[in-house]
Design a protein around this nucleic acid. Sequence first.
DNA 1: ATTAGTGTACTAATTGAATTAATACACTTA
DNA 2: TAAGTGTATTAATTCAATTAGTACACTAAT
Lengths: 122, 122
Amino acid sequence: MFTVDPKSSLPIYEQLVAQIIRAIARGLLRSGEQMPSVRELASNLLVNPNTVSRAYQELESCNFIVTMRGKGSFISDLPLEQVKHAAIQSHIVTLCTVADELSISNDDLYQLLIQTREDLSC
Amino acid sequence: MFTVDPKSSLPIYEQLVAQIIRAIARGLLRSGEQMPSVRELASNLLVNPNTVSRAYQELESCNFIVTMRGKGSFISDLPLEQVKHAAIQSHIVTLCTVADELSISNDDLYQLLIQTREDLSC
DNA sequence: ATTAGTGTACTAATTGAATTAATACACTTA
DNA sequence: TAAGTGTATTAATTCAATTAGTACACTAAT
C-alpha cells in the first residue's frame, strides 16, 4: 500500500506522512478505519518501528489520525475540511508574516496565489 | 545602523537580510544608494566579511540589491513592488503545493489568509 | 495470570547540512 | 601601483535531524 525510498533526501517518516495524507484526502482511507500497526508497516517497509511511529505521531499532531496505546491507530473522525485547514495553517501564518513585513496587500497576495496555482497545475 | 546577535539561533546572515529588507521596504534605504562595504559592515558588527557577503548574496538573489565586484553593493532600482513579489514567491509556492496536496480550494485558501492576517495584526 | 498484540519512551550512533572563519584571489578606480 | 571593492575555496565546527536498538506500558483475549 505504501512505499518508501531510504536513499531519498526526504526523511522516511516524511515520505510516509505525505503518502498517508494523500490517501486520506482522496478517500482511500476512511474515518474510523484502522491503520496497519507500527510493527507491521515497519516490517513491510523494512524500516525501524520507531520510524513508522514518528510518522503516525506527526499525523496525530495534525489530527489526521487518532492513536491509542495498546489498540492501534485509526483514521480520525473529525470533519475532513477542519483537519485540512489545521494542517495548512502554519504555512499560511508564515506567508502572512512575510507579507506583513513587506507590506504586501491582501489583493496582491491573492493575485500571486491564483497565478501560482495555475502555474503549478501545468 | 544594523545590529546582530551572535548567540541567536537565527543565523547572523539571516538577521542581516531581514533587517536590510525591512529598511528597504520602509524607505530607509533608497534606490541607487550604496550599501556599506562588506568589510566595513563586517568590522562594525565584529563578524567575518564572508558572513556579510552571504547576506548580500541572498539579497541580490532576490533582486533587493545589485552588487558589482570592485565597486560595491547598491540598492536595486527595480520597482519595489516587483522586488517584493519576487521575495515572497517561494512562500507562495510552498503554500500552493500543500494546498494542492490537500485539495484545498482557492476560495478556502483566501478565507484562511484573510482571517490569519486579521489575527496577526492584533 | 498469561500471552500476543498494540504504541512509545529513552538512549545513542550517525549522518549531513548549516554556519562561520581563514585565506587567497579577482576586479575597479584613482 | 595602491587601496578599495566583492568572492571563491577550503576547512573547522557546531548542531539538528534521522534512524535504530532496546526496554517499557498498555489492551484485549484466553
